[in-house]
Design a protein around this nucleic acid. Structure first.
Length: 277
DNA sequence: ACTAATGTTAGTCT
DNA sequence: TAGACTAACATTAG
């Protein structure tokens, strides 16, 4: 379930394999993944002959920069990229294949087919959906305290839901939100508008810190995530609450609990993260 | 063999 | 308009 640190790890591994490579063919076995252009034949024709210049990331989106186009890719739950010789047998969940002139192939694999791809003429992706409404991530300059405070204070939704909202803060998913709130000692159900200045500061600080630490560990592997070179992440060993239900809290003698918040598994320590505190 | 749970986002409904 | 809910899917644990 790639969140920002996993996407960043994929970006770094993948660039080594595909930088400079030229696309000679594109195969599309599940067209619904391609959201733009509407005509998938056009998607294919636009890509043939293009070379990969570099890969960037915005929140959880990967952006492949080609000569004349940018390919915006979101992995959602289970999307994966890997590189293979084109004659190598492909697995049944490989849906999109980009063949290179040198005989290698970039493959997009997605068990649940939730991932998306948008191809736009160079530079346009910043001005249109899905990137246009994306908030800055905690590593970007615009993500400063006054911006964040204003966003958090203007809604009474539960803070956990607000932190999952990619138009407020980009990059956090279920795992890193639970970890961030634990470190900031804030209850996941607390109304966003009721947060103190101190709590907002802490959430901001720990969101960045948690993501940064996870990047150095190559991300978190819970069920299926691996980077594009097949390497697992290591951050799961540093999780304090996610997946730790019924385990002792690392800071006190209480037990980590798991509840359901808007249909998402939500983990916290009832003593360290007191409701209404 | 069935059911629930898994997590991300866009779109729909209230 | 804020905010809650659901569909898009496949797999696996219970």
């Amino acid at each position: 379930m790639p969140e920002l640190p996993e996407v960043e790890t994929i970006r770094k591994t993948l660039i080594q394999f595909i930088e400079g490579k030229t696309i000679s063919d594109v195969q599309i076995h599940w067209p619904r993944i391609i959201k733009h252009p509407e005509d998938t034949e056009r998607f294919k024709l636009q890509l043939i002959g293009q070379s990969f210049q570099h890969i960037s990331r915005k929140g959880k989106f990967l952006i492949f920069h080609l000569d004349d186009y940018d390919l915006v890719s979101h992995l959602r739950m289970e999307g994966k990229y890997s590189v293979h010789p084109k004659e190598e047998e492909k697995d049944k969940h490989t849906h999109i294949l980009f063949t290179f002139t040198d005989g290698l192939e970039l493959r997009y694999n997605d068990v649940r087919k939730f991932g998306t791809m948008h191809l736009f003429e160079r530079g346009r992706y910043l001005k249109v959906k899905p990137i246009s409404q994306l908030a800055p991530d905690p590593f970007e300059q615009e993500f400063n305290l006054s911006y964040f405070t204003e966003k958090l204070l203007k809604t009474r939704r539960a803070i956990k839901n607000v932190l999952l909202d990619q138009t407020v803060i980009a990059g956090l998913g279920n795992i890193y939100v639970d970890e961030t709130l634990f470190k900031a000692k804030v209850h996941p159900l607390k109304a966003s508008c009721d947060l103190s200045k101190e709590e907002i500061k802490n959430i901001k600080k720990y969101a960045k810190e948690t993501l940064a630490e996870a990047i150095t560990q190559g991300g978190t592997t819970i069920r299926s995530y691996v980077a594009s070179d097949g390497e697992m992440g290591m951050f799961q060993q540093k999780l304090y609450v996610y997946g730790q239900e019924d385990m002792p809290c690392v800071h006190c003698e209480d037990t980590v609990v798991k509840i359901r918040l808007s249909n998402r598994g939500t983990h916290y320590c009832p003593s360290c993260q007191r409701e209404g505190a």
